[in-house]
């Protein structure tokens, strides 16, 4: 039975203040990044679309991959303003380390350092989803994958960002050879094969994810350093 209303005052729900669009400190600018590590190399791909948080495209030329050292890159999706701040902070700290120690920070150390940097802002996080990819002291390729507050894991392949749901199963199947009945070879693939696979993967993500597209940066890290390649995606 409905309660009888005796008050002449307007209902509580009608007394709520009008909700003007409140200040939103976070924006998701979208984008997909992915990385695959091989025996002595890493391949990193990131699209260059930057959305405005909705259907709009702010720029088609925003590169999400950032070189940290000669052996290590950072790929970030999420909020662009936070990404820039994070990149500036890491760049400063790595330069300081280089000057203090006379050598660049090792890739596993950078990976831990990024986690600490993210966790430092645990209660006002950087809205960024990161991949650190590079080769360690032994020359072996590794990926570190993060959440926004610094939880991380060292893996052989990963993807982050708006298209990661589309890319991960592809990587599971083609890189880790999951759910395959017949597995041929010993699982070692050449860098060129991975580059070609990564291009297919990010193109496919661009087909279905509206926040991914325009161009892709394909980056290869190995003992010789970091090589960049531009790759075209769909502009729609």
């Amino acid at each position: 039975m409905e309660t009888l209303k005796l008050s002449a005052l307007p209902e509580q729900s009608k007394q709520q203040p009008i909700n003007h669009g409140r200040f939103e400190a976070y924006v998701d600018n979208g984008g997909t990044v992915m990385a695959v590590a091989g025996k002595d190399y890493c391949v990193i791909a990131g699209d260059t679309r930057m959305s405005d948080g909705g259907y709009g495209i702010q720029t088609r030329h925003y590169t999400k991959v950032f070189q940290l050292t000669n052996k290590c890159v950072l790929a970030t999706s999420g909020m662009q303003a936070d990404t820039i701040a994070l990149q500036k902070r890491l760049k400063l700290m790595l330069e300081t380390y280089q000057k203090e120690h006379g050598k660049p920070m090792s890739t596993p150390a950078i990976a831990q350092f990024l986690s600490n940097t993210l966790y430092y802002k645990r209660f006002f996080p950087y809205y960024t989803f990161n991949l650190v990819a590079g080769v360690d002291e032994k020359g072996e390729g590794w990926i570190w994958t993060y959440d926004a507050v610094g939880s991380h894991e060292r893996v052989k392949y990963s993807s982050q960002g708006s298209g990661n749901q589309l890319v991960i199963p592809l990587l599971d199947n083609q890189v880790a050879k999951r759910n395959q009945q017949i597995i041929q070879g010993n699982g070692d693939v050449s860098c060129d094969q991975v580059v070609s696979f990564v291009k297919d993967a990010i193109t496919s993500a661009g087909e279905r994810d509206i926040y991914t597209g325009d161009f892709a940066d394909i980056v290869v890290v190995d003992k010789d350093g970091v090589r960049w390649e531009k790759f075209e995606l769909k502009l729609d």
Binding site: D52, T59, H61, A81
Partner: peptide
């Protein structure tokens, strides 16, 4: 270049804001 209230910043050949992003861009 363009900068907005949360600090998003980029350089482009065409920049618009507000309704301009819907109509003029």
């Amino acid at each position: 270049g363009k900068v907005d209230l949360v600090g998003t910043c980029f350089k482009e050949d065409i920049v618009t804001c507000g309704y301009g992003s819907h109509i003029a861009l």
